[in-house]
């Protein structure tokens, strides 16, 4: 170290052994404050959802449903098809070795409908729709459009966030259904057309394993994923920093937060829904 370089050792004047504790305390305080702020924001969205969007809000909601739903179908179906196909490719040798290749349909379809379909669709939407939502609202904030709404006595949450929130919450389960169907077909293509599994057995075991509760499990999850994606994306957009850098950072934070929340939420929802299944149908433990 040269003589003129600054010495950053703990003995430097001004450094206190309490500094790391202060930093940690400050981080915890900010995290709790952020969580509280998000809670209030989500509460405000839910409040306006029950009051209903404005007349313009309903129209905006339809536009958002088209943007989020219809325009996401190709990408969601494409990823769904390949995930179903990969599942079949990976599972076939294992099941073949055990002599259960005919049961491949149940594994592929249940995995897709219950776990992979909802999670993958939600992750795709967090990237495609959540990012766009954060960028749009963040840009509106930095160009004073949000202030203009407030100045005209319009509540920005009711006018901007509620239509996007409702559209996302409604369209996520719909897109999940598309992903599920195409995922099952992707698995079927590999299992039946490539590996030679019997077509009747594939669909027979698939339908036997996929009961109404399994389908509902996937849809309930996707509903909550939709809530998470839309609320996080809108929150990050409204709290975006100034300038292009602020909006860019908000988009990144929005995707990362949504991704983590989706995975954590998936774990807790899976646990909760399996427990509910075990309570109501104790003799029939879910297959997966």
């Amino acid at each position: 170290m040269s003589a003129i370089e600054k010495d950053n050792s703990p003995t430097e004047p001004g450094w206190s052994p309490l500094d790391p504790i202060t930093t940690m305390g400050s981080s915890i305080y900010n995290a709790i404050q952020g969580l509280g702020d998000f809670g209030r924001f989500l509460g405000s969205i839910l409040h306006w959802c029950f009051r209903g969007p404005t007349r313009m809000g309903w129209r905006d909601m339809m536009t958002q449903m088209y943007e989020m739903g219809t325009r996401s179908i190709p990408v969601v179906m494409l990823t769904g098809a390949f995930i179903g196909a990969v599942l079949a490719i990976e599972a076939y040798p294992q099941f073949q070795a055990l002599g259960f290749a005919s049961r491949l349909g149940s594994v592929v379809v249940v995995s897709v409908v219950k776990q992979i379909g909802p999670v993958l669709t939600a992750v795709m939407l967090a990237g495609r729709v959540g990012g766009a939502m954060t960028a749009e609202l963040g840009t509106m904030k930095v160009t004073e459009q949000v202030d203009a709404l407030r100045a005209m006595a319009a509540d920005p949450i009711r006018t901007l966030a509620v239509p996007r929130f409702l559209a996302c919450v409604l369209m996520t389960p719909v897109l999940t259904v598309f992903s599920d169907i195409i995922g099952a077909i992707g698995g079927w293509l590999i299992a039946v057309k490539v590996e030679g599994v019997n077509n009747y057995h594939f669909w027979h075991y698939a339908s036997q394993a996929t009961d109404l509760f399994t389908i509902n499990t996937g849809l309930i999850k996707s509903f909550f994923f939709g809530v998470a994606i839309a609320s996080i994306a809108c929150y990050k957009g409204f709290r975006s920093g100034s300038g292009a850098q602020g909006v860019g950072r908000a988009c990144t934070e929005s995707f990362v937060a949504s991704f983590v929340v989706i995975l954590v939420m998936n774990f807790f929802l899976a646990t909760m829904l399996n427990n509910i299944y075990n309570i109501y149908w104790p003799s029939q433990a879910p297959l997966f």
Binding site: T139, E144, A151, A153
Partner: peptide, 24 residues
């Protein structure tokens, strides 16, 4: 509060520096 300010804000017109037109 924001809600109480609404009737007051309806009595104002505000021309923002950059226009703040709604892009969409």
């Amino acid at each position: 509060s924001e809600g109480e300010l609404e009737p007051i804000r309806k009595r104002f017109g505000f021309l923002f520096q950059m226009g703040a037109l709604f892009d969409s």
